[in-house]
Amino acid sequence: MFPKLDLDNIVEELQFEEKKNEGKTFLFDFEKGDFVIKDGRLVEVEGKEAIKIWIEKILRTEKFKFEVYKADENINEYGTTIKKLIQGKKVPQFFLQSELKREIEEVLKRHSEIDRIKDFRTEQEVATLRICFTIILKNGETFNQEVNF
């Protein structure tokens, strides 16, 4: 009388579709500001390395600045407002720390493989702000990430 559903297959199809929508990721040298090329081709990365590149790109991209990333009604807009938070404003360090953590956690949880972040900290060195944290993936793997502004 009731239809039979194979929920395991449905979940697998949805997870595959999520990964497919994330697209390919190519190795990027953030210090040089260019893609890494080997034998005349872009170097494709997968797994944790692809997630690391994605994290660095989304954190370095200014939200609302580029039309290509514009989303309907600014919902799930690509990027962050980190640069606006740290440039030209004198705000209490505890406020800056908590706001950076909130925004970074919010944007990183959009990735289908990221479960959460922990051990969040910032280090100010003259004109450079270093943001460090540990990423915990849904499969239980972890890695440390550092982004400099």
Rank of each mutant, 00 (worst) to 15 (best):
F120H: 08
D119F: 00
L129H: 04
C132G: 06
I75H: 03
K38E: 15
K24E: 12
E105H: 03
D6S: 00
S98M: 11
E56N: 12
R102D: 01
K4A: 02
F64S: 02
L137V: 02
F133C: 04
W54C: 01
I53A: 05
S112E: 10
F26G: 09
A127I: 10
A50H: 09
L96V: 00
R110W: 06
E44Y: 00
I135T: 04
N148H: 13
F28I: 06
E125W: 05
T142N: 03
R130L: 08
L14T: 11
Q97M: 00
D8N: 15
R116H: 13
I135Y: 01
L96R: 03
K138A: 05
W54F: 10
K109T: 06
K20R: 14
E46V: 15
R102I: 00
L108K: 06
I114Y: 03
E18I: 00
F35V: 03
K20D: 09
K138T: 13
I131E: 04
M1L: 01
F94T: 11
E46P: 04
G47T: 07
D6F: 11
L14C: 11
I114M: 04
T80E: 00
E77Q: 11
I136V: 13
T128R: 12
E106N: 01
Y78M: 09
F30I: 10
T128C: 07
K19M: 15
F94I: 12
I53Q: 15
N9F: 06
L137Q: 11
I75L: 13
N144M: 13
I55C: 07
E99G: 01
R102P: 06
L85N: 08
V36E: 08
E73K: 11
E123F: 04
P3H: 02
A127E: 09
V45Q: 13
E73N: 12
K118F: 14
K90L: 12
V11A: 09
E123Y: 00
I104L: 00
F26S: 09
L100F: 02
T81Y: 04
E44S: 07
K101Y: 08
Q15I: 11
F64W: 15
A71Q: 15
W54P: 02
K52Y: 04
K48Q: 14
E44Q: 14
E77A: 01
R121F: 04
A50R: 09
D115G: 09
I37R: 00
E77L: 04
T128W: 07
I51D: 07
T122H: 05
E99R: 03
K83E: 03
T134Q: 15
A50P: 00
K118I: 11
R102N: 08
D115N: 14
I53C: 06
D39R: 06
K19E: 15
V36T: 12
K118C: 11
K101S: 02
Y69N: 07
W54T: 00
G23W: 03
L5C: 07
L96S: 01
G40W: 11
F133R: 05
K70L: 08
